[in-house]
Simulated assay, not measured.
Amino acid sequence: MSENTEKSSSDVPIGPSSNEDNERDRPDGEALRLPSFVAGSGTLDRLVDTARDYARAAASDNTLKAYAKDWAHFARWCRMKGAEPLPPSPQMIGLYLADLASGAGSSPALSVSTIERRLSGLAWNYAQRGFTLDRKDRHIATLLAGIKRRHARPPVQKAAILAEDIRAMVAALPFDLRGLRDRAILLLGYAGGLRRSEIVSLDMHKDDTDDGGGWIEIMEKGALLTLNAKTGWREVEIGRGSSNQTCPVHALEHWLHFAKIDCGPVFVGTSRDGKRARNTRLNDKHIARLIKTCVLKAGLRPDLPDAERVKLYSGHSLRAGLASSAEVDERHVQKHLGHASAEMTRRYQRRRDRFRVNLTKAAGL
């Protein structure tokens, strides 16, 4: 019996189950149960449920969904090859990565970044099941290095929505209730450099809802957003704009006033006729659809066919647009976007600082 197998047999997960193999095949957040030597009680059972909630909160819903799909795909691939996904086998994982890169059969070859994300998903899933996946094992590391050398391509970046673009996009929106909401979403997302999930997770006040990811406070000089983001809690200051037509705080105030929102989610759905606000929080996919729709309405990049135009832009185009357009010290942009390093901020800057420093002339040429 392998060391990993012995370890998982002795360290019994928390949660009721009589089938150990089934327990190992589920992440810890779902397989939590009491140790076999502890008698159950109402209090302890409630603590098990609480522990499961905390375990599920260790990663975002989108990340958990992606990891679940990664595991399901790998488990299905293993069984088609006559193998089992548990315990981890570096040799089988190496073959799996080779299959993903080569695009054998009817499946298309995956990009290097997608393969690396799949590997991260497998490592996470193995950790949740009490195993350790050694990514430095030669069967994995050497093969992954070869895949990168042969198939790596420059990263594909979405186009930035610049200041003139965002003005054209909001001008294309109607002035009904839905238009007021979408105008506030675009301007707030742009000025705040917000992610899609951060926009839709906003509440009016702290602790308004269980699924909220932050709240707003509107002041005389602007709006203060407190966000529970990927890198932890941070505050984002959004100042008032130079005109009401493009001011994100003014747009937010208009939406809240006419939608009669004073508690709960800030951005909610509207009735089919666009005249009444509902109680349901918007999904982050709405932000992506809104951006693509407004790109077409505003006529951005008219030199390209519609299908290619919408592919150029995504939710991240708002963050990239702010980073590329704000003519301020890079440190302020880094703090505003919540980046841990200046290098990450520079990845978002599509047009700033190019050729500002000319080393050719500085070197005497």
Rank of each mutant, 00 (worst) to 15 (best):
4 N>I: 08
10 S>L: 14
15 G>I: 11
16 P>T: 07
25 D>E: 15
28 D>F: 13
28 D>V: 10
30 E>K: 02
31 A>H: 01
32 L>W: 05
41 S>T: 11
51 A>S: 07
57 A>V: 00
59 A>K: 09
60 S>W: 02
72 A>V: 05
84 E>I: 02
84 E>D: 15
98 A>Q: 13
98 A>I: 05
100 L>P: 06
106 S>Q: 14
114 T>K: 13
120 S>M: 11
124 W>P: 04
127 A>I: 04
130 G>W: 08
130 G>E: 11
133 L>D: 07
134 D>I: 04
135 R>V: 13
138 R>K: 13
139 H>Y: 12
139 H>M: 13
141 A>V: 01
156 V>H: 12
164 E>W: 00
167 R>D: 15
176 D>P: 04
176 D>K: 03
177 L>A: 01
178 R>T: 13
181 R>M: 06
188 L>K: 03
191 A>Y: 07
198 E>L: 07
204 M>Y: 07
214 G>Q: 06
214 G>I: 08
216 I>S: 04
219 M>L: 15
223 A>Q: 06
225 L>R: 06
234 R>G: 03
243 S>R: 14
250 H>P: 00
255 W>P: 08
255 W>N: 08
256 L>Y: 01
256 L>D: 09
257 H>Y: 11
257 H>M: 12
263 C>L: 07
270 T>S: 13
271 S>F: 05
276 R>T: 14
278 R>S: 13
279 N>K: 15
282 L>W: 06
284 D>A: 10
288 A>E: 14
291 I>Q: 01
292 K>H: 02
294 C>M: 15
299 G>K: 05
311 K>C: 10
311 K>M: 14
317 S>M: 10
317 S>C: 06
326 A>F: 00
336 H>Q: 15
337 L>F: 00
342 A>I: 04
342 A>F: 02
352 R>H: 00
358 N>W: 00
364 G>W: 11
365 L>F: 10
